[in-house]
C-alpha cells in the first residue's frame, strides 16, 4: 500500500472516530440536562405537594376537633359570678381567653381573670370558677369563654339572670 493511501485511511478513520465521540458527548449532556430538569421539577413540586397535604391534614383534624368541642355550664354563685364548667366532649379543651362585654358602660375587658389557661380533660369539671367583676344581680354583660380551637361559649348576664346555651 502506498503512503498516500495509508494517510487517506488514517484521515478517514480519525474523522469518523472524532465525529462519533462528539455526538456521544453532546447526546449525553443533553440527556443528563433533560433528566436533571425533569427530576428537579418533579422533586420541587412533590415537596410542595407533600407540605400541602400535611397542611390539609392539620386543617381537617383541627376543624373536626373544633366542631366536637362542648362545655356544660352550671350556675354556682352570684357575687362574684361563679360557674361550674364541665367538658362534655371526647377531647381536652383549653380555655385560653375570657372576654367580658360590659353592656352598661359598653366596654370590653379581655382576660379579667388571672387563672387561665384552664385545661379540662374529657368529663372533667372546674368547680366554682369565678369571673371577677360580674355581679349577677346588678351586671348587664356578655361573657365569652374562648378555647384554643377558636370556639366561643357565650354567657349572658342580664336582669339578675345568667343565661347559658348548654
Amino acid at each position: 500500500m502506498s503512503l498516500a493511501a495509508k494517510n487517506c485511511f488514517r484521515t478517514d478513520g480519525k474523522r469518523k472516530g472524532n465525529a462519533k465521540g462528539i455526538t456521544n458527548v453532546l447526546g449525553a449532556i443533553l440527556f443528563i440536562l433533560a433528566i436533571v430538569a425533569l427530576t428537579s421539577i418533579i422533586a420541587i413540586v412533590a415537596a410542595e405537594y407533600s407540605s400541602y397535604v400535611r397542611s390539609a391534614d392539620y386543617l381537617s383534624n383541627l376543624e373536626r376537633e373544633r366542631s366536637s368541642e362542648s362545655l356544660y355550664f352550671q350556675y354556682a354563685a352570684g357575687n362574684p359570678l361563679k360557674l361550674n364548667i364541665t367538658n362534655t366532649c371526647g377531647s381536652s379543651i383549653k380555655i385560653t381567653q375570657i372576654v367580658v362585654h360590659d353592656k352598661t358602660s359598653n366596654s370590653l375587658v379581655v382576660n379579667p381573670i388571672a387563672s387561665i389557661p384552664i385545661v379540662l380533660n374529657p368529663g372533667m369539671t372546674e368547680y366554682n370558677y369565678s369571673i371577677t367583676g360580674i355581679n349577677t344581680a346588678s351586671s348587664n354583660a356578655t361573657i365569652m369563654i374562648i378555647t384554643s380551637r377558636g370556639n366561643a361559649f357565650i354567657i349572658a348576664v342580664e336582669g339578675g339572670k345568667v343565661l347559658f346555651r348548654n
Partner: peptide, 27 residues
C-alpha cells in the same frame, strides 16, 4: 412565583391560617 409549587404553597399557607369571628358590637 412558580406556578405549580406556588399554588401548593399558597394553599398550605391558607390552610394554616384560621380565624373566627367571636363577637360584634357597636359603640
Amino acid at each position: 412565583t412558580g406556578l405549580l409549587s406556588g399554588i401548593f404553597r399558597s394553599g398550605s399557607e391558607q390552610n394554616y391560617e384560621r380565624i373566627s369571628i367571636v363577637y360584634t358590637f357597636k359603640n
